[in-house]
Each structure stands twice: as structure tokens, then as C-alpha cells.
Design a protein around this nucleic acid. Structure first.
Lengths: 206, 206, 206, 206
DNA sequence: CGGTAAGCGAGACGGTACGTCGAGTCTTAAA
DNA sequence: TTTAAGACTCGACGTACCGTCTCGCTTACCG
């Protein structure tokens, strides 16, 4: 076992630099978009040399991905979401897309990066697609155990609806995601689609 | 007699060049992606000089937008969609997103463009968001007149579901849009959401 | 004689335009140099279209040559120079380079043009080299007939000295040609070189 | 201890690149002329990127000036010219303008540059005017000490004659500078002008 | 405890695309 | 048929950015 084998000599990497670089990248991405986030600017703002940046990340897109990923405040599992007793309550407590203030600003910057590099696409997909869909699916399954859902529901499809509508609104339509929209989406789309009593928002509690 | 003020002199722009340039741009965009779509290459393939391209479009992103927009094979109005007698039939005959061979390849290039330029965003939004949502809404209204839809439906929200799911799948998830997906989306999401207890869903609530 | 044969139909060339174009060219050449004198600017200032310019002159360099040539106020022959009775007097009355105020400004613009086009070089040579050298030579011959010159003189070489020194001073050294310089050149170079009595400027009149 | 202020960090410019670029520029200038000397071509031949070229020279004309200047094979001082014992011998051993293979091809490109930029003009003047005139003057002074020169000579004017005639012949007349011309210029112009009745000229005045 | 291997900020490097601009040609409606 | 206006092709210019490489310095381990 060479877990600690003869530690290589030389100066160790400054762990704080990773954070500084990621922060600089996130800020610039949000401020100026993907193209505006030049590597020189990132290094400069992070107080680092370009070589330091490239020693840690092999390319701009990889850095971008990590910058975005590291800031993700979205719950990754239903365990992190308190059980409110109803699907509606659970969804409202999550309020997709809200927590990470500029998640979508940053996400749009990634879209082009994703196209170039399949490896990035994989990471991106996991971070921005799968995790959200998975969370959604877990919440739906929790509701299903409660008996809230109608029969014959396609959980995979339904779980994708909310993430799709949110990212579409922000990235494609360019509109902001406020509480009013989220609530309306939940009440007028997700719940009618998922629950067994179409008109009733809280069917089981009655 | 033309009331327009005595046409100013000089050679008129060659309308055919617009088409040639847009076509070249579309082809290159599909073949090589946004970054691979060099302005020199576009001009070259179109048999034009770069100056001619830049006389018509002020920047690469503007050209890209138009190139994508002009090739849109999506029907812009419900009048262009034959009335099959049912919402399901109408939707299947449209199959959003399918006709334009590689909308998404092209669209991803636009996302960054949208961020940079509000003017681009406006055009983009109209072409890629509003038109599809509008078409969807018209089809829903047609179904409503037939009495297919359930009461209290939020047409605006429902109309946005299909476009959102399709663009999300293409751009964010990076998966392709095949017939199987479209049919499943229609049957498992759109119709359950819109119709007044269609097919198998109805018996359950009785 | 077909001086008026069945006059061709259509609009006749506007003779005044030639002058306007040449004037514009000369002005721009003097103001901004050869590169700064763009054909668009020439056409614009002359109130003409570019096609009109190119119908009359086949290229920028040709126009430049003509623009320079047309303004040339240098005597082309010794006949135009009054016989003052001495070489010194003749030379002073010519004062090479002085008449056309910005001859050399314009000439320097031509140098690069000359390199590109042998045809231009021919015209240029005739206008700026041969004519001046020829004039100089004729004045020297006139002096030789008077018996002013020393024996064994190489007229061709001596005739080239003054034009060379003047253009060198203006184009290469970038200094201006004033009376003081011209007089000094005549008295300290040309006359000592040409006359039979080195120290005496008016040898024969004594 | 070095009093120089703590060298600033970063990779230093590769001095060899300057030479490579200048050489490439000189070659291209000679092969294709000023217009044919593309900056891309210079960078390419020098094995450099365009940015590297522009980091060192702010414009094409500046580079051209330096390219021409650096290659000057003309002696800058009389000390570099062996004392042959006579003015004639000294002059023949210098043979102005000959060594630099194609000074004039290169020089013509500079003329326009000189007009645009006073800073360029300054460098150009020093390199192409002052140095040659200075050298000539020193040779004349050496001759004067030997007692070769006639009295009352205007050294400044005489020193300018040869440079003027050579550049005039090359740049304006477009003729080449061969030995025959140089020898003739020396024997028929410079020496008769400078010497106190040398050879054949002396007997005539006696 | 001093050598040495690595990390560091700075910035030059090769490449390559962008967007501008000039020369010379061609096309149109009007004169 | 000529004119003014201006669009056309071609191709160079100068700028900016990416990812790499090279400096001189600093940091830490290891013999």
C-alpha cells in the first residue's frame, strides 16, 4: 500500500487557489457570459497565473463546468427535502431553480461548451439534468407511496417536466423565474398531471 | 404609381446572396458547429466576400440567428396544420422539432449569442419560443372548441410544456428527438394534462 | 475627316469631371499621402462615382501620376527659360522644385506606385526625371556655347546633380526646399562643378 | 548587487525572434515588394505568430523601417573605411549603396511610411540620410587633411551629393547602381567638385 | 540543514478567427 | 451611353483569445 509513499518533494498546490479560481470563473460567467469569461480574466481576478489555472483544469470548458457545479445549491436527493405530507408541499419547498441565484445564467454559458466536448457533456448532464430529474422522481415516488398519484403515470416523463419548463423559461425565453411562475407551474401543470384528482390540489388531506 | 420616394440610385443588393449566405451558414453550423462556422468559410462557400456578409449582418451571432430562423420548417400557425379531429391527431401531425433536421445543433450556438445581445434575444425569442407556443396554443384552442379539454385549464402553461420538453431534451440533456419520445410525451404528458380524463385515465376517477 | 461623324448617341463625357477628379486627387495626395488618398475619397470629393473615375483612369497609380503631372509647373524646355546670359542666372530663374508647391509631397506618394507598375514608372520617369534632367542639360549646353563650362565635362552626370539633390532633400531627408538651399546648391555644387573657373561665379562677364 | 530594479517577472522576449522576423521581412520585401510583404507571411516565414510580430512592432511600416535599417551594410564611420591615401581610393572602396543588395527595393516601401509617421521619419532619416552623409563628410575631411581639397569648399553640400545621386538613380529613376555608374559619378562629379584641380582639370586653368 | 523538485505570478509564444477597410469591377435608375 | 450611387469579390490589416511554454522566485520535503 503506497497511500503515503515517499511524498513527492516540492511545493504543494495551494488549495485556496482552486476556490479563488472557481469563484472568479463563476463571477465572470455570470457577469459577461461564456465568451466574456476569458481565461486571462479568470486568472487575473483570481490573482493567479494562467499556468496555475491550466495546471488544474485542462480547458476552459472543464473549468466552466466545475465552476458551475461547485456552486450548485440544489438538493441532490429527496432526503434533503423535508416531507411536508403532500406533493404540493414538497415541491413548493424545493422551488426548483430558485436557490442558486444565477444557475441558469451560468448554465446557458455551458450549452456551447457541452457541444464541443462529450466529457463535459457527461458532467453537465449529471449536474444539471439527472440530479434534478432524479430529485423530482424521488418526490413523485414519495407521493406515490402516499397514494397521491393517479395510476399508469409515466414517472420519467413527469419528472422531466418541471426542470424542462424552468430551464426553457430562463434560457430560451429569457424570462425570470419568480415564485408566481413556480407556483403556477406546480398547480397548473405538475399537479394536474400527476395527481389522481385533477382539480384538487390537496386530494388526500380532504 | 409607387408612392415610395424615388428609389435611391445604386446597385441593389443581390437578394440571392442572402439566401446563399444563409444556406452556407446553416450547412457549416450543422457540419462543424458554431465555432467551426468561420465567417471566412461562410463567405467562401456562399461565393461571397466577407464584406458582403458583414454588410448584411453586423456580426457572427446575428447571422447565426437568421440562419437558424430562416430554415425553420415548423408551422407558424394552426391553419397550416390539418384538422385531424382530435388533439392527439393534430399533435402527432406536427411532431414539434422533428422537421428541422438539426435545430438543436444550431440552437446551442445561439444560446451564447442570446446572452450577449438583447436584440438577438428578441428575434430568437419570437422565432423559437413565441411561435411554437402560439402554435401549440392554437391547437389547444381548437381542441377546446371540440370540447376535448378539461375545465379550468391554463392554456398558456400547457402550451409551453411541449416546446420546453423538446428543447430541454435536445439542448440540455443532449438526447435526440425521435418518434418514440414525441409519442410518449404526447400520450403521457400533454394529453393527460389537457384532456378531460381521456381513455384509461377516466375510469379511475369514477 | 470624320470629326463630326454621326455623333454616337448617349450622354457625352463631362470634361469638367476630369479636372474635378484630378484636383481632388492632388488635394488628397498632399493632405493624406498616397495611402490616405483612397479612390472612394477621390470620387466623393470630386462629386463623382467610382465608376466614372475608373472609366477615365485604369488604376489608382495612373490617376496619381496624372494628378501629379497635370499640376506640374516646371518648364519642360530651355526655350521656356529666358536667357539671362549666364548659367548662374538661368539656374536661379528656374529654381528647380520651387514652382509646384508640393511637388515632392506628391512625388513621394508615387514612389511606391512606381515599383508596382512599369508603365507608370515610364510615365513617372519622363515627368519627374527625364524632363528635369533634359532641361538642366539644355541649360548646360547653352552655357557651354557661351564658353562658360570647363572642358571634359560629363553633361549627363552634371545635369542629374540638381534634380537628385532636390528630391533627396525633400523625400529622403524630409527637409524643405527654400531659396537659401537652392542658391547654396547652385553656388557651392553646380557652378564649381560645371564652370571653368572654380572660384568665380560669373567668370565670363568679368 | 545589481542596482537595476528587480527585473520584472514573466518570460522574456526571445531575442532570436526579432532577428528571424526582421530577416523574414527583409527577404519578403526584396522578393515581393512592400505590398507583397504580408504580415501573415512575415510571421509565417519567421516561424512566429502574428501576435508576436505585433508585440514588437506596432505596425507594418515600423517593422519595415527596422527591417531595412538593421540590414544596412553600409559603414557608419570613416574609421571602418581603410585609408587608401587618396579621396578617390577611399570612395571606390566604399562604393555607396552597393553592398546592401537591394536597398532601393526596400527603401521605396519606406517612403510612404515616412510620410505617415514622423517617428518613422526620424529613424529613417538617421539611418539612410545622416549616416551616409556623415560618412561622406568624414572621408572628405580626411582628404582635406591630406590637402587634396580645393579651398572654400562647402563640405555639407558636397557630402550630400553622392548619397543624393545614388538614391535618386535607384528610387526615382529606377535604374540600377553598377560599378560603372559609381566610378563615373566619382570621377566626373565628386572629384571635380572636391579636389583642387585634379589631373586633367588642372592644366586647363593654367 | 541545505539541495532539489515542484508550484507560483507574469507574461511571451504559435495559431486562428474576428471584424474593418481599400482596390478595382459590376449593376441599376436616371439623365 | 454616361452618370452617381453603391453592392460586389478579394485579400491584407490589426486585435483578441486559447492553450502552451518559459522565466525567476518561493515553498516544502528529504537526504
Amino acid at each position: 500500500m503506497d497511500t503515503t509513499v515517499a511524498r513527492r518533494p516540492g511545493r504543494r498546490r495551494d488549495g485556496a487557489k482552486d476556490d479563488a479560481i472557481l469563484l472568479a470563473a463563476r463571477e465572470l460567467l455570470a457577469e459577461r457570459g461564456f465568451d466574456g469569461m476569458t481565461m486571462d480574466a479568470v486568472a487575473d481576478r483570481a490573482g493567479a497565473g494562467k499556468a496555475t489555472v491550466y495546471r488544474r483544469w485542462p480547458s476552459k470548458v472543464q473549468l466552466t463546468v466545475d465552476a458551475v457545479v461547485c456552486g450548485g445549491g440544489v438538493p441532490m436527493s429527496a432526503d434533503e427535502v423535508e416531507d411536508t405530507g403532500s406533493l404540493r408541499g414538497d415541491l413548493l419547498s424545493v422551488r426548483f431553480g430558485r436557490p442558486a441565484t444565477n444557475d441558469a445564467d451560468v448554465m446557458s454559458g455551458l450549452i456551447s461548451a457541452v457541444k464541443e466536448n462529450p466529457e463535459v457533456a457527461k458532467v453537465f448532464h449529471e449536474q444539471f439534468v439527472a440530479s434534478r430529474v432524479r430529485l423530482m422522481r424521488e418526490l413523485l415516488e414519495r407521493a406515490q407511496e402516499r397514494g397521491e398519484l393517479r395510476d399508469g403515470i409515466d414517472l420519467d416523463m413527469v419528472a422531466a417536466v418541471a426542470p424542462a419548463m424552468i430551464s426553457y423559461r430562463k434560457m430560451v425565453a429569457g424570462m425570470k423565474i419568480d415564485d408566481e411562475f413556480v407556483v403556477r407551474m406546480i398547480d397548473d401543470v405538475i399537479l394536474p398531471l400527476a395527481l389522481s384528482r385533477p382539480g384538487a390540489a390537496e386530494p388526500l388531506s380532504s
